[in-house]
Computed example of a mutant assay.
Amino acid sequence: MTNKEKYMAELRNQHPDDPEEFLEFCSVFHDYNKAKKYGDILYTCTTYADIANKAVRLMYINGDIDDTRAKSEKFLNLLMPLACLDTKGNGHAAVYHVKQMLDTTNAREERKRLEAERRKIWQASQKGANTQPTVPFSKIIIEITDPESMRLFIAFLQSAGTKFSVTENRFFHGLTATDRPKECIAIEEASPWLFRAFTDLQLHCPDAATWIYSFQSDWITRDGITLSETVELIQQELS
């Protein structure tokens, strides 16, 4: 059973009356309440433009999806059954409206402002606690399903003197083909190092695009994200 299958099974047990289409949508965020909030907005959408400007825009600004996922036909097809369209929805047709929204509105600027506000809140909490300010915490956790890829990546981390650990992680439940708990690599490093390393991964390691990432900091946690989303979050930490 894959991670998604296990999560979906748990959702079905907890919410047996919810339609399968909504549970599929929940699997994107791994957060039922967050998905419910977005689902309520999608229910008010009657056109592709509505979906782009009311629902996708908010998901993007909140940092729950990146540019790549926002413009993904596969992702948009998950949204179609939750909207009130006159005809059966088509993700391909909705892509145009999402691209137009990203290019003609201030969604990207709003996203950056929200991240900056979260950063300020964290900094204020440090001062309010009357403690010595600490360096913002950040960690990247990676599930690598291919043993050889994991071995090579560990060797790279060791040669770079990187702080990392290999452990079963709470974000990636499930079993391997041999019924052993899945192992993940947890990396805790300074953002400049992470940016250089993960940009290099994008350029020189095609397998890295198939891995599953989790990003954590003092003001944000994102699970089940892509490599491109991970790099974007690291960039935000450096801004």
Rank of each mutant, 00 (worst) to 15 (best):
M1T: 11
M1E: 07
N3C: 06
M8E: 02
M8D: 00
A9Y: 08
A9F: 06
E10V: 02
P16H: 08
P19S: 09
P19G: 06
E20T: 10
F22T: 01
E24C: 06
F29G: 01
F29E: 01
L42T: 02
Y43M: 13
T47P: 05
A49Q: 13
D50M: 06
A55V: 04
I61W: 00
I61H: 01
I65S: 01
D67P: 01
K71N: 06
S72K: 01
E73D: 12
L79W: 02
L79A: 03
T87K: 14
A93P: 01
Q100L: 08
Q100I: 03
L102W: 00
T105L: 05
R108N: 09
L114W: 04
A116S: 14
R118A: 07
R119G: 03
K120A: 12
I121W: 10
I121T: 11
G128Y: 07
Q132T: 13
P136K: 07
I140V: 14
I144V: 10
E148W: 07
S149H: 13
M150G: 04
L152S: 09
L152W: 03
L157A: 08
S159Y: 12
S159L: 13
A160Y: 11
F164K: 07
T167C: 10
F171D: 10
L175V: 15
L175E: 15
D179R: 14
C184E: 01
E188M: 13
E189W: 01
S191Y: 10
S191C: 12
W193T: 10
T199S: 12
D200A: 14
H204K: 14
D207M: 14
I212P: 00
Y213C: 03
Q216Y: 10
T221K: 10
T221E: 12
R222W: 02
L227W: 05
I234Q: 04
L238Y: 05
